[in-house]
């Protein structure tokens, strides 16, 4: 299981290298994000490799989003795959977290 992080200025881009984010690896993902969130307030989560997310996966993303925004930062999602987008729409998550087409757009939107 792997997360790749890159820094562009103040922004940290996190690429989830997993194909799936479900109850089986949600805890691991949650703990991995801890050190990143401590260091950065502007986070882009690249979902390009993720073909499947369940409600536990959603829960972790929502939980970190709350922490980050309460610290005055923001987290944006990019390259969300079709089946994952379908889930986000089902639980109305697309209204809570900003979802952008690719990382360039996300970087620009952070200004």
């Amino acid at each position: 299981m792997e997360l790749i992080t890159e820094n562009i200025g103040e922004i940290t881009i996190v690429t989830l290298m997993e194909k799936e984010l479900d109850a089986g690896n949600a805890k691991w993902f949650k703990s991995q994000m801890l050190s990143i969130v401590k260091k950065s307030k502007k986070i882009i989560l690249d979902m390009n490799h993720v073909q499947f997310v369940d409600s536990s996966g959603c829960g972790v993303i929502l939980s970190w989003l709350r922490t980050i925004t309460s610290n005055g930062g923001d987290m944006k999602l990019v390259s969300v795959q079709k089946p994952v987008q379908a889930l986000f729409e089902l639980v109305r998550m697309h209204r809570i977290v900003e979802i952008l087409e690719d990382r360039e757009m996300a970087i620009r939107s952070f200004g």
Binding site: S55, G59, V60, L62, S63, V91, I96
Partner: peptide
Amino acid sequence: PNFDGSRDGGFG
């Protein structure tokens, strides 16, 4: 479920 992002669970 709550759809306002205030809770992580309850969607299953």
